[in-house]
């Protein structure tokens, strides 16, 4: 099977996101900028990769798929220093974990990377 050549690309070019909190857990909803990129995200943004990306910052990671919204939902456990009013963090409610996930690089086909970078301008 021939595999297309891939390049690493930050998720910010492929997706937008919003995050919030439930107690000491942050959630990040990752939404494909183009519906056709959802499948790529589903394959590339795995629990293992996200856990590695956030190592030392969160304990467990859960992932849920929402193909109807071209979105993935991640739960980042123990991410908020106790969360709510207990937390001493600036971002006690996990509001900007969204863009922290968008820093992550995933391998994408060259053609997709080209289109995604162009869209960002």
């Amino acid at each position: 099977m021939a595999t297309a050549k891939t390049v690493p690309l930050q998720l910010r070019y492929l997706a937008h996101a919003r995050s919030g909190d439930k107690g000491n857990t942050a959630n990040v909803g990752l939404i494909a900028l183009e519906p056709e990129w959802y499948d790529l995200l589903r394959k590339a943004v795995t629990v293992a990769r996200v856990r590695r990306h956030f190592r030392g910052m969160v304990s467990r990671v859960d992932r849920y798929e929402l193909p109807n919204l071209s979105a993935l939902n991640f739960l980042l456990h123990d991410a908020l220093d106790g969360g709510g009013t207990i937390s001493l963090k600036t971002d006690a409610q996990g509001k900007v974990y969204s863009t922290a996930l968008l820093r992550m690089e995933v391998p994408v086909p060259v053609a997709v990377a080209r289109k995604a970078r162009k869209g960002a301008r």
Binding site: H16, G20, K22, N27, G29, Y64, L69, N73
Partner: peptide, 15 residues
């Protein structure tokens, strides 16, 4: 996109 961002806000298990 504006509605989708709100839908995933504070989401747990979407099912």
């Amino acid at each position: 996109p504006s509605v989708t961002e709100q839908l995933v806000y504070e989401m747990g298990d979407p099912h």
